[in-house]
Amino acid sequence: MEIVSGLVSYALAKFLFLSRLSNKENAEKIKKMEEKVLEVYDIIRTIRDPEKPNSLEELEVVAEDCIEVKSLDDDDYLIIIRFTPTVPHCSLATLIGLCLRVKLQRCLPYKHKLEIYISEGSHSTEEDINKQINDKERVAAAMENPNLREIVEQCVLEPDD
């Protein structure tokens, strides 16, 4: 009985030790993802609205809590952004999504996959716009349009540029 008790005690001690290590690793991963969220937010918050002189942050189109970052592997991340247009019938919602995509593709120093969506229930044609802004071929075609490309360039410029 003493041997069994000793084995149970040893197993429990080992479990608790490994559990604490696991919790420490999880805490480090969570901290790293929070830092990535802040980095992404810092990049997108200065994008200007296509119709107004305000930034997306000022108009509350984007916020820190609309960004989610997940690790796919050591150096590759999935970034999910949910933005909220100022009105449910915003005609420039697709353009805003395109600006988000372009700015992040240019500015993020690490490998990433982007998923950009309109916040659920915030736009009348939400599904169609979500398809457009996440379709590589549609994004590439849009960026081939010189007029559209010029608008995107103006929106993604930093205020000091």
Rank of each mutant, 00 (worst) to 15 (best):
K136N: 10
G97I: 01
Y77T: 06
E115Y: 05
D65Y: 11
A93L: 02
D75C: 09
A142T: 08
T86K: 08
S71Q: 12
K31I: 11
N26R: 13
K14P: 05
L108G: 02
D49H: 07
L157K: 14
E137K: 14
L72N: 07
I79H: 02
D75S: 15
E144R: 09
C90D: 07
L7C: 06
P146M: 03
L114H: 04
G121L: 03
E126N: 10
V37T: 14
D128P: 09
I47L: 02
L148E: 04
I96G: 00
P146T: 00
D74Q: 13
M143K: 02
T125I: 06
L59A: 04
T46G: 09
S91D: 12
P85S: 04
D135Q: 10
T84V: 08
D76P: 05
L114T: 02
Y117C: 03
Y10Q: 14
I116P: 03
R82K: 15
F83I: 03
E126S: 11
S119C: 11
I151L: 06
N26E: 12
V69F: 01
G97Q: 01
A142S: 14
Y110Q: 12
I133F: 03
D65E: 14
P109Q: 08
F15T: 15
L18F: 13
S19L: 12
C155P: 01
I47K: 02
R20W: 09
D128V: 14
R106L: 07
E144M: 05
P50L: 00
R48P: 02
P146F: 01
N145E: 04
R106F: 01
D135C: 11
I30V: 12
N145I: 03
I67T: 04
E127Y: 08
D75M: 07
V37H: 09
T86D: 08
E153H: 09
E126M: 10
I96V: 11
D49L: 00
N54Q: 15
L59K: 02
Y10D: 13
H123D: 05
L104R: 04
S9I: 07
R82C: 08
R20K: 15
A11T: 11
I30A: 08
S122Q: 13
I129K: 02
D65H: 13
V61K: 00
N130S: 06
Y117R: 11
I47T: 01
T94D: 12
P53E: 07
L56N: 03
E158W: 03
N26M: 08
K32A: 15
K131N: 15
N145M: 03
L18A: 09
L108N: 04
H89V: 12
L78V: 07
V62Q: 00
I30C: 09
R138D: 08
L108H: 02
E126Y: 06
D49K: 00
L114C: 03
Q105S: 06
T94K: 12
E126G: 06
L38W: 09
A27W: 05
P50C: 04
L7D: 09
N145V: 05
D75F: 07
I133V: 04
R138P: 07
I79P: 01
T46R: 05
H112G: 04
D161S: 14
S9W: 10
S124M: 14
A141R: 11
D160N: 12
V152D: 00
A63N: 12
T125H: 11
A63W: 02
M1P: 12
C107P: 03
C90S: 09
